[in-house]
């Protein structure tokens, strides 16, 4: 049975991804800051799908621990899905460095740190699949969330570079670009229902991108076009908008 590692496993999106993989017969390694919270999810996956689910402590911001964290995993996962992220509060972050740093380091530095470890291992094995959940917010900075957006932009660029390098090592890297998704992160926002995906939609996209070796996939196809339009607005006009 193949194994999948899910980094940042407590979120709605991660739970949906874990279920998807378990339903396809994967053993699941759930990694989160507070793994004891995930015991219920662990028993649930084991019972429903008759697989082996294990829990692992992981903090994206504790870079020094990442190599040891990965070394301890047995077996090594065939696929690694990087789900964690932090939206933060852009307004606070403008004047509060620790909030800015948390946004940057969770979405970018932490992801780079752990995926460096994972990709080096996969390169050595000449096999493996990495899926990173980035965001459409990384495609153009907006005044309401440019800290998060710029960190995700960095992550998106990292993933495409990694994909280029790993192609030559027989390792696939997929970037997922969700638009709006109904999760705890967005629970207090009013989202347009037609444009908003469910965590299960993201999970299906992730699984498909991994199996079909897709490069960059939008959750809900029209987001690709929405972003194309948003990106094509000339900067002299864009800067005047209140977005």
């Amino acid at each position: 049975m193949p194994t999948v590692l899910i980094l940042g496993a407590a979120s709605d999106m991660a739970v949906a991804i874990a279920k998807k993989y378990a339903s396809k017969g994967f053993n699941v390694q759930l990694a989160a800051r507070n793994p004891s919270r995930l015991q219920a999810l662990q028993s649930d996956l084991n019972i429903r799908y008759n697989i082996n689910c294990t829990l692992h402590e992981f903090d994206a911001l504790n870079y020094e621990s990442h190599q040891a964290f990965f070394d301890r995993l047995a077996p090594k996962p065939d696929q690694t899905i990087c789900v964690f992220g932090y939206l933060g509060d852009n307004e606070t972050a403008r004047t509060n460095w620790s909030e800015s740093a948390k946004i940057i380091h969770t979405n970018y530095t932490g992801a780079v740190s752990i995926l460096n470890v994972v990709s080096n291992y996969y390169a050595s094995q000449k096999s493996g699949i990495i899926v990173g959940i980035s965001s459409v917010a990384g495609e153009r900075g907006r005044q309401s969330n440019y800290l998060y957006g710029s960190a995700k932009a960095g992550f998106t660029a990292y993933l495409s570079g990694l994909r280029n390098r790993m192609f030559h090592e027989n390792v696939h890297v997929a970037s997922i670009q969700p638009g709006f998704v109904y999760t705890a992160m967005t629970a207090n926002m009013k989202l347009p229902p037609l444009l908003t995906a469910k965590p299960e939609d993201v999970a299906n996209t992730v699984f498909k991108a991994a199996t079909k070796k897709k490069n960059t996939v939008y959750v809900k196809w029209f987001w690709r076009w929405i972003m194309l339009i948003i990106k094509s607005v000339p900067e002299f006009m864009f800067k005047k908008l209140k977005l």
């Binding site: 709605d12 219920a40 999810l41 028993s43 649930d44 019972i47 429903r48």
Partner: peptide, 19 residues
């Protein structure tokens, strides 16, 4: 509705535990 995990299932005796 999101608090929906299966906690144990004794298939011998038919005891089921969940959220």
């Amino acid at each position: 509705l999101k608090y929906d995990k299966i906690l144990s299932f004794d298939t011998e005796n038919g005891i089921f535990e969940c959220q």
